[in-house]
Structure formats: structure tokens, C-alpha cells
Simulated scan of single mutants.
Amino acid sequence: MAIATETHHEEKPSSKGSTVEKRWTLNDFDIGKPLGRGKFGHVYLAREKRIRVYLIVEYAANGELYKELQRCKYFSESRAATYISSLARALIYLHGKHVIHRDIKPENLLIGIQGELKIADFGWSVHTFNRRRTMCGTLDYLPPEMVESIEHDANVDVWSLGVLCYEFLYGVPPFEAKEHSDTYRRIVKVDLKFPPKPVISPSAKDLISQMLVKDSSQRLPLHKLLEHPWIVQNADPSGIYRG
């Protein structure tokens, strides 16, 4: 089980019938190997020594997708399409619950024991019915509306999914530049270029181009993404890449 390093407490009855506060400390746990780190702390594999654990999260046995992408350099179209379709279905569910993730990137995607993807790190997510203005997330994945500090909605996740698809296929995000100011400029202009290598299909380029649109209202809706020819022809319907 994975456990956060926050301190939680519960109340237990004392011998006199009143309640006394029980506080968790690190001494209550055997701490194992580190699993990852984020903006708000470190995550470790841990075992509670004596009584039940107050907060646990599922252990993703195959680790971060980011490390797998680094190992492979880039993914095949079938693997990329399988991952993108799986994430699209997950985001449809989140958006249906009025949750915007706002930080979709390889570092925040975990691989389960069967090879399935799991969205993690909801530190920048928000539950909302309204448009937002907060600038958050990771620079290479920021949409134009966040860069320009104007209102944004759930379509920021569609943009991030487009950036992710590009990075899956080329090994680098599409608007990467040496200077942050240049990255901002390329994002605002949607300076989208497809390098000659690795060679990817025109259908994949078409899908990416329909997600990376400056006008957020014109980005390809996620349910339409699942019907796109590139997804239909390349993605495993199970959402699990089987190699």
C-alpha cells in the first residue's frame, strides 16, 4: 500500500468513557521504497505496524509512464492510441463529475499490474461547474488560455491530451523550447510542427491537430476522439497495451 506522509488522527474512547485523540506518526509504519514525488510531498511504499491504515492508495506496480517513455524514446502508434483512448474515457468520466485534472502529463500517469493506465496526482484538479482563471499545471502542457491568463474550462484537459499524444509519438512535447518565453510564444501561436522522424501516419497528425486548437471551444470533444479513425484503427478496445 502507498501512504502519504501527512499526519492523521482518530478518536478512541478512554477508560472513563470520554474520547482521546490518537495521532499517527511515522513510528506507526514500516517505510519501504520510494514510489514518487510531487508538488506536495513524497510517496513511499509502507506497511502499518499494528492497526488499520487511515489512508491508503492503490499501488501501481509498473510505476510511472514517464520512465517507460524515457526507456522507449517514443511509442508505436498502436501503443499511443491505446493509451490516448483509455485516458479519453477516464477524462470523460471525470468531466462528467465536474472535475478538471489540469495536469495531465507522463509523470502523472501510472501503469497498473495488467498494463492499464491510472491517472494520479490530482493536486491541480478542481471540482467546478464554472470557468476558472487560475494558471496551473506544467509549462509544456499549458493551453493558450492559461498562458494568456483568461478563463478556462474542461477543454484544458483536451489540449493536454493532444500534447501527450504528440509526446508519445515523437518523444518530446510539441512546443518545447530552450527558453520559457519561447515556449509560451509557441503555445500562444500554436506553433505546431511535425518533424520528419519518427514517421507517423497522417491520421495521427490529424487527431493531434484537432486537439491542439487555440479556441478551446473548437477542440475535438473527447467522445468524438474515441470515434476518430486513428483511434478506431490502432487502439486496443480494452485500453491495455499488450506489447
Rank of each mutant, 00 (worst) to 15 (best):
Q218M: 15
I200K: 03
L207S: 00
P174E: 07
K205T: 05
E116W: 01
V99I: 15
P143T: 11
K118N: 00
L226P: 02
V172K: 10
E148S: 06
R132T: 07
V188H: 03
I119L: 15
L220Q: 14
M146G: 01
V199I: 12
L142R: 04
V156A: 08
L109M: 06
E167P: 01
D103N: 06
F168M: 05
R185Q: 14
V232W: 03
F129M: 11
S216R: 15
R132A: 10
V213R: 10
L212E: 11
V163W: 02
K189G: 10
G137F: 04
Y141A: 08
I113N: 02
N155Y: 08
Y141F: 14
V213P: 10
R185Y: 12
H127T: 14
I150M: 07
G162S: 08
G162W: 01
S125H: 09
H152P: 08
V172F: 12
K205F: 11
D157N: 09
K193E: 09
V163G: 01
N234L: 00
V172G: 03
G123D: 11
L109I: 09
P174A: 08
K189S: 13
V172N: 08
K214V: 09
F122T: 08
I113V: 02
E145V: 02
H98C: 14
V199R: 08
I119H: 05
L207E: 01
P144T: 04
V232A: 06
V99G: 10
V232K: 10
V163R: 00
G123P: 13
F194K: 06
E145A: 06
K189D: 15
K214S: 13
A177N: 04
K205A: 06
L226T: 02
D153G: 14
I104A: 01
Y170W: 01
P173L: 03
R219N: 15
I200Q: 01
E151F: 07
E148I: 01
V158W: 01
V99A: 11
H180C: 04
E116Y: 00
E167T: 07
I100L: 09
S160M: 12
H101T: 10
S203D: 09
L220T: 14
A204P: 05
Q114A: 02
P106C: 00
I200R: 05
I111G: 00
Y184K: 12
D140F: 07
